[in-house]
């Protein structure tokens, strides 16, 4: 209640657009929920390779994964420092790339591989990396990192309120307090 009052106090008294709503991981984590293996799961075909000239980064690398929400396309790259956000113009042409979501990296490391991306209905962006699933709010700020079972996440998606991962031949799922984006 005190935290709600604090948020409301700020909302009504603060300097205009001074602070976007914070989205700590606690908003999506559910007590007692962990990663569970999904038995007899049939792995979907991997998504087609992303080969879009417009989303090649400054070093002319192709993204390993992309996800769209609204009029923004987020792209993940190997050994990168940030998810790149593109604005989708008319005809859905990606333009104006910017390192919108700075990724957590191992100290001293030049970058981290982003292997899968997804979004939830509140607009959070989920980026699968070797450090875990890095979750960003819609303004590009890191909310936190979800730990994952060992291995490289090759595919990731929401199925209703379950975040699902494919690591090798195994499918994992975990219920979160959110839902797939419409």
């Amino acid at each position: 209640m005190a935290r709600l009052l604090h948020i409301l106090t700020f909302t009504f008294l603060a300097a205009g657009p001074a602070l976007a709503q914070d989205m700590p991981l606690s908003q999506i984590l559910l007590a007692g929920e962990e990663w569970k293996t999904v038995e007899a799961a049939e792995r979907p075909s991997p998504p087609p390779p992303v080969v879009l000239d417009a989303v090649r980064d400054a070093r002319l690398r192709q993204p390993t994964c992309t996800v769209r929400i609204g009029h923004t396309l987020y792209a993940g790259y190997p050994q990168s420092r940030a998810l790149i956000a593109f604005t989708l113009g008319t005809d859905n042409v990606p333009q104006h790339p910017a390192p919108y979501c700075p990724l957590r990296r191992k100290p001293g490391s030049p970058g981290v591989d982003v292997t899968a991306l997804t979004v939830d209905r509140e607009g959070r962006i989920y980026a699968a990396t070797s450090l875990g699933i890095q979750v960003f709010d819609p303004t590009g700020r890191l909310c936190g990192v979800l730990t994952t079972p060992p291995g490289r996440v090759e595919q990731m998606a929401f199925e209703n309120d379950q975040l699902t991962l494919w690591i090798g031949p195994v499918k994992y799922s975990r219920r979160l307090n959110t839902h797939a984006a419409p």
């Binding site: 657009p17 976007a20 609204g70 009029h71 923004t72 956000a85 604005t87 989708l88 113009g89 008319t90 104006h96 910017a98 919108y100 819609p138 303004t139 590009g140 700020r141």
Partner: peptide, 19 residues
């Protein structure tokens, strides 16, 4: 702070404030 307007003029733009 800057915002990225939706290309079609509808829907919510993306805030660039934190960036």
């Amino acid at each position: 702070p800057g915002t990225f307007p939706a290309a079609d003029g509808k829907g919510k733009g993306r805030s660039n404030r934190s960036f």
